[in-house]
C-alpha cells in the first residue's frame, strides 16, 4: 500500500494544533474564555485530500478532541466529517483560493462550529443570560484567534506540503 505523505503531514499538523489548543485553553480557562479554532482541523484536508482519506483524518481529529470530554464520543468527529464533505464539493475552487480567502472561510466555518456546539450542548444552561454572554465572548475571542493562528497554521501546512514536493491536489484530482 502506497504511503500518502500528504495525509501524514496534515495529520501531524493537526496533532500540533491539538496540543497548542490544549495549552492555550489551559491558560485562558481561568479568565473564563475558551479559544476554539476547530475549523483549522478541516480546511486543508478538505482542500488537499481525497474524501476518503479526509474523512479518516477528520474522525481521528474529532475522536482525539472528544476522548477527554464529557460529551458523546464522536460528536466532533461527525461535525468535522460533515464539514469536510460539504467543503470537498468545492475542492477545485478551494485549491485556487488564496491564503486570505482560506482564512475567511476558516473564520466562517469556525463560527458555524461554535454556534452548533452552543445550541446542541446548552441543555438547561440556555435559559441563563450568563451562558449566552460566555458564548458571545468565546465567539469574539475565537474569531480573532482563528484569524491570527489560521494565517500561521495554514501557511505552515502549505509550506510543509511544498518542501516535501506534494501538490495541493491529489494526483487523481489534477
Amino acid at each position: 500500500m502506497e504511503i500518502n505523505l500528504r495525509w501524514w503531514i496534515l495529520a501531524l499538523c493537526n496533532l500540533l494544533l491539538f496540543w497548542l489548543q490544549g495549552m492555550v485553553g489551559d491558560a485562558t480557562g481561568a479568565l473564563g474564555l475558551t479559544l476554539s479554532v476547530n475549523a483549522l482541523y478541516v480546511i486543508m484536508p478538505a482542500v488537499c485530500l481525497s474524501q476518503g482519506w479526509g474523512l479518516v483524518l477528520m474522525f481521528l481529529a474529532g475522536l482525539s478532541v472528544d476522548a477527554g470530554l464529557p460529551i458523546g464520543f464522536g460528536f466532533h468527529a461527525v461535525m468535522f466529517a460533515v464539514a469536510l464533505t460539504v467543503l470537498h464539493a468545492y475542492q477545485r475552487s478551494l485549491q485556487k483560493a488564496g491564503l486570505g480567502q482560506l482564512i475567511a472561510l476558516t473564520i466562517g466555518l469556525n463560527i458555524i462550529f461554535q454556534l452548533v456546539e452552543a445550541v446542541l450542548l446548552a441543555g438547561p444552561l440556555s435559559s441563563y443570560g450568563e451562558y449566552w454572554l460566555r458564548i458571545g465572548s468565546d465567539l469574539v475571542a475565537s474569531t480573532l484567534a482563528t484569524g491570527l493562528v489560521g494565517w500561521w497554521f495554514l501557511s505552515l501546512e502549505h509550506w510543509l506540503l511544498t518542501i516535501t514536493g506534494q501538490e495541493m491536489a491529489e494526483p487523481e484530482n489534477v
Binding site: L69, P70, R134
Partner: peptide, 13 residues
C-alpha cells in the same frame, strides 16, 4: 496537569 474550563464543562486533569 491540565485545565479545560469551557462554557459547558469545567474539568481538570
Amino acid at each position: 496537569a491540565q485545565r479545560d474550563l469551557s462554557a459547558w464543562w469545567q474539568q481538570i486533569t
